[in-house]
Amino acid sequence: MTQRGTLDIVNLKKTFNVNGNTTPVLENINLKVKQGEFVSIIGPSGCGKTTLLRLVIGLENSYEGQILLDGKRINGPGLDRGVVFQDHRLLPWLTVERNVGLGLEGKRNGNGVNKQIVEAHLKLVGLQGFEKVYPAQLSGGMAQRAAIARALVNQPELLLLDEPLGALDALTRMYMQLELEKIWQREADVTMIMITHDVEEAIYLSDKVVIMSSRPGTIKKIIRVELPRPRDRASYDFMKLKEEILEEFQLHAENVFSYAI
């Protein structure tokens, strides 16, 4: 019996058909994610990391190999997986409250139960008081928090984040990283997988950083991050790890330090 929220990817291969030519997008992907782990996937654009995530979400269906959630093969989307997209994708015609409650609509919970769940999650992401507000009135960071709350209301085993902070400005982004860490710590048994191309963000948040390379997309290296939390971005160990990862992308060390100043 596998634990709830375990993801097992075995010998995954995915090809796309473009004008009759088959191009491999992902090849020989093997990845194990334990319950409650925070894993980041990082790689250059075009390395297939988004395709990998879409396969786990279930938005792409045909693949070779196995993607197993709790030992069961993934086939199509399901409420056991929550998703946060880069563009928050809140429905503009629903208030924040109803957006967050979207996933509960099918469930006939008793009086006010759904309302309580929604309230609790708004509190979790720090959006109390914004229940009746429409998405167009929210800032980017707030909208993304609402999207995170929406993804969590169904108590998914797995939270999949597709560059969730990619569209935010640098300061909001750092702030949201703190928030995301807090959320992850409070929802201790939810496994989180995040796609990013920000190395610092990956190290700051993850237990494991998966580095991918492109054409075809393969896993180049998996680096464990065992720094104590909350992590200090300026610490020596943090910088060393960052350097190590950047080296994988053949970026020189000087760049790292000039960037850090």
């Binding site: 979400i57 938005l59 199509g76 998703v83 997209f85 429905l91 979207l102 609509e105 099918g106």
Partner: peptide, 20 residues
């Protein structure tokens, strides 16, 4: 993009029509 949201939440046809 919104259709994908509906798929993620496993919305059926009538709810897709009504909500999206």
């Amino acid at each position: 993009e919104y259709l994908e949201v509906a798929r993620v939440f496993e919305f059926n046809k009538p709810r897709l029509l009504w909500r999206f």
